[in-house]
Structure formats: structure tokens, C-alpha cells
């Protein structure tokens, strides 16, 4: 049984101008100890997936359908996060089972509290530790992410970007959750610091087989960490499969073009590819395949009918008419 099973998840934003179908029928599973990379361009709904998994899509968003089954080994229970009361989510799931490393560490910490107190807060509130126990655990956590004890007494403005990101990671690990969601964990960082943070995440993953959902627009970062990769486009997963398959044998035209658009540091300098056009408006997405207006292989059927997910290799699924047998 997978640790997490997302089934036909739909998260819509109910705005005054209409319903934005930010996440539209997304399904995937996450095994224990697995790292899933969720990639896509801005506005494809990847962050909305992250917030939905915590049962708190940002307003005016709501989970409009589907299930998010989370298997709790200790309690021997399975929760459906998509249909759970807020109270229960808070006491049983959030931070304890699923935690999040937020995008932009600069803004994820409150400037008016010491770093140590901020990390201690969930320990006191969720785990019922005393202040003293919590502070001991804080020091342990800081050491785990490669920071020394004195950081606990500092305020966020006294730390560098890399140190702040480490603190945010320490917070996410505070209650030893089964799943950590990392939403663009290195986007605002310089390359050298980014490499250090990625190394830290690798080490933490190797030591404790935690499940991670890594969300980023940067496929290079996904390649550094992920076992399994899902490519999202306009609210849907268009391709999902083992990392080696996605990078070495991509099947969806969108994935193929996306990989060709990445400037590389080594190897021959080919002409960079790009995808003409812009992603569709998610208030009224085109019928059929959402990628067809930009797809070089678009056929008649693409604009009429939506392609189903088909298995093209072991655990490798693609939603594209080029691969569907009709």
C-alpha cells in the first residue's frame, strides 16, 4: 500500500470572474522513502497541488473533488485529506505526517521571533513538549541541518539566505513527518548555496528514508534528487515515470521540448529549443489535450478528445494521443 495516494484530485479557485481549474484530475502515488519531483512552468498548478496535500489550498481555492489517501502506519488508519475536518487535519496530519518547506525562506520566518523559538513552536503545540525539551530538540535539529547551536538565539535578519533555508528545513523536520513537501526550496538562492542545500537534502534523505515531494520549475534540481518525476501542464499531469525514463526517454512532446530548452553547461552547444505560444487560460481550457495549441505533433483528435494516461514502459505513463491506441 502506498504511503500517499492522490486520486483524481481537483482543486479549483472560485474567483469573481469564474472558476480557475488550477488542478484538474491529478493522480499519483508516493511510496515510503520515495522522492517525487513535480515539475512544470509557472501557473501549471504545482504549488496548488502542494497546498492541497496539506488540506489548505489558498483562498478562494477549494478541493472540488477527488481523494488524497494518506496511510498512517502507527495508527493503522487511512485518512482522506480531501474530505477531512480542519480540526482533525491539524491534530493528525499537518506537520506530524506531512510538513512543508516553503518557497522563499526569506518570507517563511517571522522577523520578530528568535529562530529557536520558531522551531520550538510546533514542538510545544503539536508534540506537547515542555519548553526545555523543545529547546533540546531545536539544537538537535539545527545540528542535523548543519547549523551550530548559537543560531537558535538569532533573529532571521541576522542569517544569510542559505542559513535561513536550512532553518526552514529544520522546521519541516521538527516532528519527524513521513512526507516532506519542498516547494521551490532553492529558487531564491545562489548556485553555490543551492548546491549546498541540495547536498543537505540528499544526505537527510539517505539517512532517514523519508518521502519527499519536490516541487520546482527547474528540471536540473529534480534530476539531483527525484526517484520519480511528474510533469505538469495546465493543471494536469502529462507524463509520470521513473526519473531515468523521464530524462533519458521522454515520451510526451511537452517533456521533450522542455528538456531541450534547458541550457547545459557541458556538451555541444545546440540551438536551444523553445515552445511557441503561451499556456492556456485555466478558466476556459481548450477541449481535448491542453497542450495541442503549442504542440508540434498536434492531430485532429488532440483538439477534440482528452488523451488518457497510458503505460508506455514500466511505471511510465503518458497522456498523449501519439501513444494512445484507439
Amino acid at each position: 500500500m502506498p504511503l500517499l495516494e492522490v486520486k483524481n484530485l481537483k482543486t479549483y479557485y472560485y474567483t469573481l470572474r469564474g472558476v480557475v481549474k488550477a488542478v484538474d484530475d491529478v493522480s499519483f502515488t508516493l511510496e515510503k522513502g520515495e522522492v517525487l519531483g513535480l515539475a512544470g512552468e509557472s501557473g501549471c498548478g504545482k504549488s496548488t497541488v502542494a497546498w492541497s496535500l496539506l488540506g489548505m489550498p489558498p483562498s478562494p481555492g477549494r478541493i472540488a473533488g477527488g481523494h488524497i489517501y494518506l496511510h498512517d502506519d502507527e495508527a493503522g488508519e487511512t485518512y482522506d485529506i480531501a474530505n477531512m475536518a480542519e480540526e482533525e487535519l491539524r491534530s493528525k496530519v499537518r506537520w506530524r505526517k506531512i510538513s512543508m518547506v516553503f518557497q522563499g525562506a526569506m518570507n517563511a520566518l517571522t522577523p520578530v521571533h528568535r529562530v529557536g523559538d520558531q522551531i520550538a513552536e510546533p514542538l510545544i503545540l503539536h508534540a506537547g513538549m515542555t519548553k526545555e525539551e523543545a529547546m533540546n530538540r531545536v539544537v538537535e535539529l539545527l545540528n542535523m541541518v548543519g547549523l551550530d547551536d548559537t543560531i537558535a538565539m538569532r533573529y532571521p535578519h541576522e542569517l544569510s539566505g542559505g542559513q535561513k533555508q536550512r532553518v526552514v528545513i529544520a522546521m519541516a523536520l521538527a516532528l519527524d513527518p513521513d512526507i516532506v513537501i519542498a516547494d521551490e526550496p532553492t529558487t531564491a538562492l545562489d548556485v553555490v548555496v543551492q548546491a549546498q542545500i541540495l547536498n543537505l537534502m540528499k544526505e537527510l534523505q539517505w539517512k532517514k528514508k523519508r518521502s519527499i515531494i519536490l516541487i520546482t520549475h527547474d528540471l536540473s534540481i529534480i534530476a539531483e534528487l527525484a526517484d520519480k518525476v511528474a510533469i505538469m501542464y495546465a493543471g494536469k499531469i502529462v507524463e509520470i515515470g521513473p526519473s531515468s525514463e523521464i530524462f533519458n526517454n521522454p515520451q510526451h512532446p511537452y517533456t521533450q521540448l522542455l528538456l531541450k530548452a534547458i541550457p547545459r553547461l557541458r556538451g555541444p552547444i545546440d540551438k536551444l529549443a523553445y515552445i511557441p505560444g503561451t499556456p492556456p487560460d485555466l478558466m476556459s481550457p481548450p477541449p481535448g489535450c491542453r497542450f495541442y495549441p503549442r504542440c508540434p505533433y498536434a492531430m485532429d483528435v488532440c483538439m477534440r478528445e482528452e488523451p488518457e494516461m497510458v503505460e508506455v514502459g514500466k511505471d511510465h505513463y503518458v497522456a498523449c494521443w501519439l501513444h494512445s491506441k484507439r
Binding site: 548555496v193 543551492q194 548546491a195 534530476a223 539531483e224 531515468s244 534547458i262
Partner: peptide, 25 residues
């Protein structure tokens, strides 16, 4: 150090830590 730090879309990088020859901030 700058060049060593740049990630690349190669899934074989997963198995190893990236050596960046630089220390401190």
C-alpha cells in the same frame, strides 16, 4: 566552484553529493 555548483538535468547525479570546492559564505 561556481561551475561545479551548477546542477544539470542528468538523473545519475542523484547517487552522489555535488562537490563544490568552496567554504564559508
Amino acid at each position: 566552484a561556481l561551475i561545479a555548483a551548477i546542477p544539470e538535468p542528468d538523473p545519475s547525479n542523484k547517487a552522489k553529493l555535488r562537490e563544490v570546492p568552496i567554504k564559508g559564505e
